[in-house]
Every structure is written in C-alpha cells, then in structure tokens.
C-alpha cells in the first residue's frame, strides 16, 4: 500500500529539476550550431516546396495564400518533432545506456526532478525549434499580427506536452526500435491530419471529431489565429484542452518512469 502511494502521489519538484535542465543545456551549448541547422532545415524546405511550389497551384484558403496557411502549422510541428526526439532518443539514452539518471539520483536531486528536468529540457528544445521557424516566417512576411508574440509561451506549453508524451514512450520502450511505433502511429499522422496542410472543415463529422483528440490540431488552430490576428473566444477551449492534456501526460510520464527505474 505504501509503495502504491509512493508511486502515485503528486511529485514534489524543486530546484533539482533546474539542475538537470542546466546539465542538458550545457551539453547542447557545445554543439548548438548543427542542432540549429537541423531545426531550420526541414521546415524551411517544406515551406519553400509546399508553400511556394505547390502553393502556386492551390487557390487561397479562406482568403489566405497557401504559404501563409501552412506556416503556423509548420511552426508547431517543428516544436513537436524537436521535443519528441529529445525525450525519446535523448532521454532513453540518458536513462539506459549512459546511466545519467542513475548518477544523478544518488545526489540530493530526486528521481522526479530528474524526469521533470529532462522534460523541461525537451520542452525548451521544442520551443527553440519553433522560435527559429517563427523568425523565418517573420522574415518571409508571413506574420500578420502582433498577437504572434503569444506564440512563445504557447510553444513552451506545447513543448511540455510533447516532451511528456515522449517520456511516456521512453518509460515503456524496451529498445530504441519501439520509438518507430510512436513516430509512425502517433506523430506522423498527427503531422498530416491536424489541419496543417488542409482545412478540416470540409471533412465528414467523424473525421473532425477524431481530429479533436489530436492535441496538435488545437495547437495549429490557436497558432493560426495568432498569426493572422483572428482571435475567437473558442480558442480558449482549444487552449484548455492542450493544458489539460499536458498536465495529465506530465504526471503519467513521471509515474511511469519512476515505476520503471525504482524497483
């Protein structure tokens, strides 16, 4: 019973999490250049190929040129991918082969703080990736409203969400191969069916309902609103759903990793 309570109680997370975040930051700063190029590369290719290339053949969507339509989605998806890679492959390496977690939890930093610190770091990397795209989109003249400033805190929440979700996968993964399921079954469909590349309005009702369960859908909707300055009260519902999903996944991920490591 005691063990049960220990596993499921609300974790106390103190400054130890920040120490772990700092550790990851130190490592990143050593190799940040290639990392940033990685963040930039793919989304910019999409933006150019699909936005300018394909966009030439596609009529405006609700009065918006295609490239402007897809830019917000490419931004949130690049945050998603970056956070997911960090907290699957990166965290799994630190947790298993490198034994970094083991080394830290015999210091005053607790296991919960280690997991949280790693998630915060994944979120930070996600936010950095998104920020890079935001700067590019601004340079391309694709941003139409000062509301876009709110994208920054939103990216932090999004980063937390996907870092936590990935940490759940890390807790469950027997080997690296397991992450193929995650990226193929969850992340890739999310990338394609969250309204980044085409509006979901024209789809049958069941498909729209299904897309509501994809957290990325809500993030795309909110970000698009902020990019265009078209704000509607319903965005708060989208935001609440994102936050709820983040809190739950964060909690679940800590519980699961703890259960995996503490025997």
């Amino acid at each position: 019973m005691n063990a049960f309570i220990n596993t499921f109680r609300i974790p106390y997370i103190g400054d130890g999490a920040f120490r772990v975040w700092q550790r990851n930051g130190n490592v990143w700063l050593k190799f940040y250049r290639p990392s940033l190029v990685g963040n930039l590369g793919e989304p910019i290719l999409y933006l150019l190929a699909l936005g300018y290339g394909l966009g030439k053949f596609i009529p405006d969507i609700s009065g918006i040129p295609y490239i402007q339509f897809i830019a917000p989605g490419l931004l949130v998806s690049s945050t998603m991918y970056s956070a997911c890679f960090e907290c699957t492959f990166g965290s799994f390496t630190r947790m298993t082969t490198q034994r970094t977690y083991d080394a830290i939890i015999v210091t005053p930093v607790s296991i919960e703080e280690v997991i949280a610190g790693d998630i915060f770091w994944g979120a930070t990397k996600g936010a950095i990736a998104g920020l890079v795209i935001l700067l590019v989109a601004t340079a391309f003249g694709l941003v139409g409203s000062p509301w876009v400033g709110l994208v920054l805190p939103l990216l932090m929440v999004e980063g937390l969400l996907f870092a936590s979700l990935s940490m759940v996968m890390t807790a469950l993964a027997p080997t690296y191969d397991f992450f193929n399921y995650f990226f193929t079954i969850a992340i890739a469909p999310m990338f394609l069916f969250s309204g980044i590349f085409f509006p979901l309005d024209e789809f049958p009702a069941w498909a729209k309902t299904a897309s509501w369960f994809l957290p990325l859908t809500h993030l795309v909707t909110i970000t698009r609103g902020l990019f265009l300055g078209k704000l509607h009260i319903s965005l708060l519902i989208n935001l609440s759903l994102v936050i709820a999903f983040t809190v739950i996944t964060f909690y679940v991920s800590i519980t699961l990793v703890k259960r995996r490591l503490i025997k």
Binding site: D15, G16, R19, Q22, R23, N26, V27, K30, Q98, R99, T100, D102, A103, I104, V106, T107, P108, V109
Partner: peptide
Amino acid sequence: GVIPQETNLDPDLTVFENLMVYARYFN
C-alpha cells in the same frame, strides 16, 4: 558520497565538466 558498481560518468561532458556539473546537483 557514492561510487557505483558500474561506471556512470557523464559521457557528454569532459572530466572537469563532469565534476562541475555534479557539484551543482549538491547546490
């Protein structure tokens, strides 16, 4: 102080950084 059975030094960091980063965990 703990010396584990299996080496778990931080391979992403140098010798000096390993100790500096570890010191931070102790504030």
